[in-house]
Design a protein around this nucleic acid. Structure first.
Length: 305
DNA sequence: AACGGAGCCAACCGCGAAGTC
DNA sequence: TGACTTCGCGGTTGGCTCCGT
């Protein structure tokens, strides 16, 4: 059973708002203030969905909104914030008085994204394409791997990311991709519309300390292996192995994060990781085979990789 | 003048979170 | 506690305008 519609969509007006409708909302808000939006159409005498009324108010009619073009300072601010939080438009808009998330989103999609691309900068990672190709090459076997790995290990476990002023208002996600010899961890900057994940930055889970370019994270440390431990597909013996190797990420002064080893016993060498990765892949494939046998009709062709 | 493509932006959609009973 | 309602968000779409041919 789906969620019931907020209103009878066949009987409400849609599309562009008229001056008269705008005036009714403005008059209603002026006398009643902002409250239950589902009641607004009825009380204001509008044949519109309440959600539509709210949107019209928040994106266009609010008296504190700016309707002029973005200034270079605002543009700079958007770029900087997007570099940090990705496409969390409402977060970015909160830092720009008079701008809505819709404004920022549209401005990004129509102007800034293209501008960055013309400059040879990836609008997702904010890194030069040349640098991305280099990094991409380092993750050998990335494209040859089972594509399931690119998406299945997304850990829907938000962690506090950056937000230098307000540590509570920003969340991001990390990904684990097990490649040939290493586990790679990524902060999600955004995901593309076709479902292919795009990675904001990478930190290596190798046993060597490394300095990697990365979107700035909060000062609160994290442990990479915690994301693997909760994975039901990951064999227990390998989990134990992973547990031995702990890394701590901390924010340095610059826009980078230092990943360093904090565990006392890091027994995992390249071979061990490779074996862990292979076991992981094998487990998934075995699980997949089992599913195929159980539901041959449902899975036929869907996971054709 | 007519047409088509690109750019732009307001509005819509669907989902998850938060709130209420 | 769980069902239901409302809100807020990010992604997407529809349609208008501009511009080149």
């Amino acid at each position: 059973m789906g969620r019931p519609p907020c209103c009878d969509k066949s009987n409400v007006k849609r599309g562009p708002w008229t001056d008269e409708e705008d005036a009714k909302i403005l008059a209603y808000v002026a006398s009643h203030g902002i409250g239950n939006w589902t009641l607004v159409p009825q009380k204001a005498g509008l044949n519109r969905c309440g959600k539509s009324c709210r949107l019209r108010w928040t994106n266009y009619l609010r008296p504190d909104l700016k309707h002029d073009t973005f200034t270079p300072e605002e543009e700079e601010c958007i770029l900087e914030l997007h570099k940090t939080v990705g496409s969390r438009w409402s977060l970015i808009a909160k830092r720009l008085p008079g701008r809505t998330d819709n404004d920022v989103k549209n401005y990004w999609n129509t102007k800034l994204k293209k501008k960055l691309m013309k400059m040879g900068i990836d609008p997702v990672t904010h890194k030069p394409f040349s640098q991305l190709y280099t990094e991409y090459g380092k993750i050998s076997g990335f494209t040859n791997m089972n594509p399931f790995l690119h998406t299945c290990t997304r850990k829907e476990e938000p962690f506090d990311l950056m937000s230098r002023n307000d540590p509570t208002d920003s969340m991001a996600y990390r990904f684990q991709v097990v490649s040939n010899n290493q586990s790679h961890y990524y902060n999600e900057a955004s995901s593309s519309s076709n479902g292919v994940m795009l990675f904001g930055s990478a930190s290596s889970g190798s046993c060597e300390s490394s300095q990697v370019g990365i979107v700035p994270c909060s000062s609160s440390p994290f442990e990479c292996n915690e994301y693997i431990l909760g994975d039901p597909l990951f064999p227990n013996d390998n989990m134990d192995q992973m547990q031995e190797c702990k890394y701590m990420g901390t924010l340095s002064n610059s826009d980078s994060i230092t990943v360093q080893e904090t565990g006392t016993s890091c027994s995992r060498g390249g071979g061990a990781t490779s074996s862990a990765a292979e076991s992981f892949v094998d487990t998934i494939l075995a699980y997949d085979d089992e599913m195929q046998l159980q539901f041959p009709n449902n899975l036929d062709g869907i996971y054709d990789y």
